[in-house]
Design a protein around this nucleic acid. Structure first.
Length: 225
DNA sequence: GCGACAG
DNA sequence: ATCTTGTCGC
């Protein structure tokens, strides 16, 4: 496996690397006992010139934050559909390296294998770290799906080229569903299960929601002085 | 050839 | 992703 600094910012080479790595992503469930779950999200500042990678680690089932890391760095690559991981993973890995508490499972803002070449950012991160990961996307990259059941917890398969690549899951009644997909070392049913178990009163599962809150600089009401 | 297109 | 206030609805 190439190392981080060898990653190309050239689209053509990035696509070749995806084709090489995708077959190595494991889809079977190899989850052990889960006590800590991490959430990963990336935000931007300066009109996108600065990347903010955030990782939050929470306990399960309490869902309390026990560790978090933020890494800011100059943005290296533009957003190109299908090549998101090359833009966001370098910063995310830097943040991950700062963690004191190691997670047993990671939820990533974006797709797992629900990607044209089956290597969305969640799958890429999981393969890189050899860790169980789940992709939690807010919109569709590829694949087709039927109407999603209205009730919380209802879901339908996301299908691309005759293959089920994810689940379109209703995490809140009457609210746009989430796109859940396998990252690495986990299967789809287990992925959906974990997302459901991490829900409180919001659309997003807590790990991802908390990471998103910090990455986007939306913080709990604080008093300035 | 013409759309679609994670964050 | 981000720029942005109030507002309509469950």
């Amino acid at each position: 496996m190439p190392v981080l600094h060898e990653w190309s910012v050239d689209p053509t080479e990035a696509i070749e690397l995806q084709k090489q790595l995708a077959p190595r992503v494991e889809r079977e469930n190899r989850l052990g006992e889960v006590r800590h779950i991490a959430g990963v999200d990336i935000g931007f500042e300066d009109e996108g010139n600065t990347t903010r990678a955030v990782i939050v680690v929470m306990t399960y089932p309490e869902l309390e934050i026990v560790d978090q890391a933020l890494h800011r760095a100059p943005t290296q690559m533009p957003y190109i559909p299908g090549l998101l991981s090359f833009r966001e993973l370098p910063a995310a890995l830097e943040a991950y390296a700062q963690l004191t508490v190691q997670p047993d499972l990671i939820m990533v803002d974006g797709m797992g294998i629900a990607h044209p070449r089956r290597l969305g950012i969640a799958a890429h991160l999981g393969l890189w770290l050899d860790m169980p990961t789940i992709g939690v996307g807010k919109s569709r990259l590829c694949g087709r799906y039927d109407d999603v059941p209205e009730e919380k917890g209802g879901w339908v398969p996301l299908v691309d080229r005759k293959e089920t690549i994810g689940a379109v899951l209703r995490t809140r009644e009457k609210i746009k569903p989430l796109f859940i997909s396998t990252g690495h070392r986990i299967d789809l049913d287990t992925s959906v299960d974990w997302v459901m178990h991490c829900l409180t009163r919001y659309k997003l599962p807590e790990p991802t929601r908390q990471a998103d809150r910090i990455a986007s600089r939306r913080t709990v009401a604080l008093r300035q002085s």
